[in-house]
Amino acid sequence: MKDSKHLRPPKAGFSRRDFLKGSGAAAAATAIGEGVSGAVAAEAGSSVVGPGPVSIALNVNGQRRSATVEPRTTLLEVLRYQFDLTGAKPISEDGSSGGSTVLLDGKPVSASTVLALEAVGREVRTVEGLHGDPVPAAFVANDGQQCGFCTPGFVVAVRAFLDKHPSASEAEIRAGLNGNICRCGTYANIIQAVLDVVKGGSDG
């Protein structure tokens, strides 16, 4: 996380909203900020990007990574096809399966519903960035996975859920983790895995 600081929007002076308002930028282009180095974006005061490919930098799992994207390119596409981070899965495009769940500034989002440009200047954390976290270890210990295709999205969703509810009860777990779909039917073991992490049962 060392080099993530300089990617964040500057805290002092003005907010992003003020900046955009003040610059008269189109509201549609909220995604632009430092990190976009496309020819058009480089023009002072302009916030229109594309339609051609532009270069951006993203902060992924604490590392600064460069990518070339079109305006339509999703965060999921960049992660999978440019960074080869294939943990987040394309299960549904509309986010209804939770398969592509990643953390954006700590909040769970479906990477398939986020444009790559929207992720500029924000911290992206993928399942690969949870190496050593007790959540994936608890999935293994409790066999909370079968085919495994939904597992990375579930692991990230559980991480986000526990960040918010570190001592969740079983009833809260059953109520709070319904954004992710598993087809093999691993839910019973996932519930145990989450309870395990709450109890500190998995050493990770």
Binding site: T86, P136, F139, V140, D143, Q145, G148, P152
Partner: peptide, 21 residues
């Protein structure tokens, strides 16, 4: 016995046909 491919699956390291680039 814990499944031997469990860690690969739960950390996103497991490569499916969809993941082969």
């Amino acid at each position: 016995v814990e499944r031997i491919d469990g860690p690969a699956k739960s950390t996103g390291a497991a490569k499916y046909a969809y993941d082969i680039n």
